[in-house]
Design a protein around this nucleic acid. Structure first.
Lengths: 203, 203, 203, 203
DNA sequence: GATGAATGAGGGTTCATTCAT
DNA sequence: GATGAATGAACCCTCATTCAT
C-alpha cells in the first residue's frame, strides 16, 4: 500500500495508526491533553519521535484521527438508536447513558471532546468538533420531532431549544465531573439528570 | 503604593494591572487564548516582556487577574439579582441575559471562562474556574428553592438537576456561538432559550 | 556632601551605605550569595531597586563594600596580633581562632570570602579577594620568620609553604563546614586543628 | 541504543555526551564557569540550543556529567595508589602530584571542582562535590593510618586533622594559582609544598 | 533621596517537525 | 519503517541598570 495514500485516506486506518491513536487516548487519559506531545507519545509507544511521522503527517492529524474514531463510534450508536423505534424519551436515555458510560470507561474521550479551546487554532479540528456536535443535534432533532408528533413529548416546545437544553445539561454534567476530578459517579448522576429532563419534556 | 504589596493583593489592582488585564482580554478576543503569550501581550502594550513582571509575578497571575475580574463582576450581578425580590423565573432571566450581553460585548470573557482544558495544568486556575461556576450554582439554588416555595416553579423538580439544566444549556449556547464563529445573535437566541426553559420550569 | 564623591570614596561609607552592606551580608547568610540580587536586597531594605543606585554605582560596588569591610576588620585584628609580641604559635592561634569565631557568628562572611568562582568575572572583585588573602599571608610571614628566629618554630621549614599549609587547612575546614551545612562546631574543630598544626610546627 | 536510557544511565556516556562535556570543559577553561551557558555551549559545538537537550535533560546534568567524569578519573588514580603498597609519604606525593598535573593540563577541572559557591543552589551538585572530597579524605585516611602503623608517619598526629592539612594546603595552592591568573608553575610549587608537608609528617 | 516603570540582554527549556542514515 | 540528531521558533522568566518624576 502506498505510504502517501494511507496517510491521507480518511477512514481507512492502518494497524499502526490505530495503535498510535490508542496510545494518544491513553496518554490524554493518564495525564492531560496538554501532555499529549509527540515526544511523550513516541515514548509511550516505545519508538522515536520521527517514527510517528511515517504514519501521520502532523500532530493535528493524530488529533483528527482521535476525533474521527469517536465520531464513527458515536455515529453507529446514533444510527442504531434512531432505527430502534422505541419511544422518543427512551431513545433520549439510550443516547445519553451510552455516552456517559463511554466517558466513564474512557475519560480521554471526554478530555478530547471538551478541548475546543485548544483546537481553536486549527480549522480542521474546529470543524471536526463541530461535525461531532451537529451530528448529535441532528439526531436529537429527528427524535424530538417524532416524539412530539407521536404525543410522547409535550407540545409548545421549541425543538432547537430543547436540543440545547439536553445536550447542554449533559455536557455541563461532564464538565463538572471533570473539574471535580471525577469524584462522583457520572453514570448515576446522569440517570438522575435524565429522569428530570424526561419529566420536564413529557406530556 | 508599595510595589510588593499590590502584586499580592487580590482585589486591589493598580491602574497598570488593569491595563494589562484589559490588553490580555483584547488579545484573546482578537486572536485566541493560545495567542496570549507574554511576548504578544507586551508587544500589544508597547513594552518589553520584562516590564510585565513588574506588575504580575507570572503569566498565570495575569490569567487569574482576568478570572478574578470576571468573578467580581459576576458576583455583583448575582447579589443584585438575589436582593431584587423579583419572581424566581424573572431572576433567572436577569442573570442569564446579563451574562449573555456581557459575553456579546466581551467575547474574550467567554474565551477565558471556557478554557478549562488549557487551565488544567494549574491548580489555581482550575480552582478559580471552579469557584466561578460554584458561585453561579449556589445563587441558582437559592433562587430555585425560593421559587418552589413560592409556587413559581413547579414542584417535583430536583434542584441540583435543574441547576445543571439551566447552566448547561446556557453554556452550550455560548459554546455553539463560539464554534460557529459568532455567526448568530447570542442574546436573541438566549431570549428564546430562556423562554423555553421558563416554560419547562413554571407551574 | 557631594553625592558623586561619597560613591567613589573607598573607605568612608555613609550610614546608608553601611546599612545596605549589612543587609547584603544578612541576605547572603540567610539565602546564599546567588540570592544576592538587587531586587532581593532592595526588598530586604524596604526600598525600590533604583534607590540602591543612589548609594552604590553598581552591584559590584556593593560586593566590594562587603569585602572592604571584612578587610578593614581583618586588618585591625592582624595588626593587633602583630603588635601583641606573644609567642609566634600563640599569635597563630589568635589569628585563626578569631577568624573562625567571626565566621561562626557571621556565616555570610565565609560565603563571600569563599566565592571566588563567582567573582571571577570582575577584575576588581578578584583583586580585592587577592588583597585579603595576601594581607593574611604577609602577616603570617612576619610571624613565622620571627618565630623561627626566636626558636619557637622549628627550623628547616620553608616559610611560604608553611603559610599555604596553615591558611589552606583553615580554609578547608571552613569549606567542609559550609558544605556539610554547618553541622559541626567550627570553633571547636578549629581548636583541634590548630593544636595539630602547632604540634607540627613547634621545635 | 535507546535514547531514553542513556540520558539517565550514570556512567555510560554516549560519544555525543562526551563531546558535550568536553566542550563544556573547554568553555570553562577559556572563559569561566559563569560563561558556561546553554547558548554558549551550543555555539561552541556548532549546534542550536535545543540539540543539547537530546543528550542531557538539563544544564545541571551537564555539570554533573563533568563532575562524574572527574570523579571516575580520580577514583581510578586513588585506587591504583592505594594498591601500590609504596611508603605512605610516597603515596601522598603520588596522589597530589597527579592531581596537580591534571589541573595544569586541564584548568577547567579546577574551575569546576572549586565552584561550590555556584553549585550551592542545587542539591545534586553539592552532593557530587561532597562525594568527590569525601572520596579523597577516605583514601588519605587509609594511607595515613597505614603510615602510622608502619612507622612511616610520626605518631601523636590526629588523623582527621592531618587530612585537613594536606587537602587544605593543596587546595589553597590551587586557589592561589587560579586567582593569580596561573602565573606560576603549579606542579613545581606543588613539589615544594609536598616536600614541606612530608618533612612535617615523617618521623 | 526615593519611586515606579521600563529596558535589553540573556537565562534555561520545550516542541513540532525534518532528514540523512 | 525506524533511528538519532538537529532545527528554529517560541516559551516564560530574571536581572542589573537607567531615568523621568
Amino acid at each position: 500500500m502506498n505510504v502517501y495514500l494511507h496517510k491521507n485516506a480518511m477512514h481507512t486506518k492502518t494497524e499502526k495508526q490505530r495503535q498510535i491513536i490508542e496510545a494518544a487516548i491513553e496518554l490524554i487519559a493518564e495525564k492531560s491533553i496538554q501532555q499529549l506531545t509527540i515526544k511523550n507519545l513516541a515514548k509511550k509507544l516505545g519508538v522515536t519521535d520521527g517514527a510517528l511521522y511515517r504514519h501521520f503527517n502532523s500532530k493535528i492529524d493524530i488529533l483528527l484521527g482521535i476525533l474521527h474514531m469517536f465520531q464513527a463510534e458515536a455515529r453507529e450508536n446514533l444510527e442504531q438508536v434512531k432505527k430502534s423505534r422505541l419511544p422518543a424519551l427512551q431513545q433520549f436515555e439510550d443516547i445519553f447513558l451510552y455516552r456517559l458510560k463511554y466517558f466513564t470507561q474512557r475519560p480521554a474521550v471526554a478530555a478530547v471532546i471538551f478541548s475546543e479551546s485548544i483546537f481553536q487554532n486549527d480549522v480542521r479540528l474546529t470543524r471536526a468538533v463541530n461535525e461531532f456536535l451537529t451530528m448529535h443535534e441532528d439526531t436529537l432533532r429527528i427524535i424530538i420531532e417524532r416524539g412530539i408528533r407521536k404525543g410522547e413529548i409535550r407540545k409548545g416546545i421549541l425543538i432547537d431549544e430543547t436540543i440545547y437544553i439536553t445536550i447542554g445539561s449533559m455536557r455541563y454534567l461532564v464538565t463538572r465531573w471533570r473539574l471535580k476530578g471525577r469524584d462522583f459517579d457520572l453514570y448515576e448522576k446522569g440517570v438522575q439528570l435524565l429522569g428530570n429532563l424526561k419529566e420536564l419534556l413529557k406530556c
